[in-house]
């Protein structure tokens, strides 16, 4: 193969929203069938409507997406691995939430309630909070991605 030793580059392909994974899977099948030099495909959840393809040349990616439904176009230019590194090591969702912070719950049965953070569990990505409006302070444990920080740590 001509591209045996060529260096990888990252190309961005625009897709229909919420079809990123299906496009990635279909591109994999095409790459295998047509023996195209696509080395990996990345579909991070943070990047809606786009997928990242590792290949040595844009023309290969262009060829691969031709017959794939929901794959729209290749974005001009290319990225380096350093630019996409942060997608490979996602931060825990509780990052930035500290004990004593005031948060608002954004989903679940307590949606819209304000609460104070009592404990942060980084390993399980959970936080334990006490609701402001509760008559008796009962600690509840919720997922770190279902809250919005209103006020950072408060000294009292």
């Amino acid at each position: 193969m001509a591209s045996e030793d060529e260096e990888s580059a990252i190309f961005v392909v625009k897709t229909t929203a919420n079809q990123e994974r299906s496009v990635a899977v279909m591109l994999t099948q095409i790459a295998k069938k047509d023996r195209l030099d696509i080395r990996s495909i990345l579909a991070p959840d943070e990047l809606k409507g786009y997928i990242l393809i590792e290949s040595p040349r844009a023309s290969i990616v262009e060829q691969a997406i031709q017959t794939v439904p929901h794959a729209r176009s290749i974005v001009k230019g290319q990225s380096s691995l350093d630019e996409i590194m942060h997608f490979l090591t996602p931060k825990p969702t509780v990052t930035g939430i500290t004990e004593g912070a005031i948060i608002e719950i954004t989903s679940g049965p307590f949606k819209g309630e304000k609460a104070r953070v009592k404990r942060v569990d980084e390993g399980h990505e959970e936080i334990t909070v006490e609701l402001f409006d509760a008559v008796v302070p009962i600690p509840i444990t919720i997922r770190g991605d279902t809250v919005r920080v209103l006020k950072k740590e408060e000294q009292s």
């Binding site: 899977v25 994999t28 696509i38 080395r39 490979l88």
Partner: peptide, 15 residues
């Protein structure tokens, strides 16, 4: 969350 498909691990920088 997030999906990565590795096709050619020997030559993939991401892999």
């Amino acid at each position: 969350s997030g999906m990565v498909i590795i096709i050619d691990p020997k030559r993939s920088e991401i892999a």
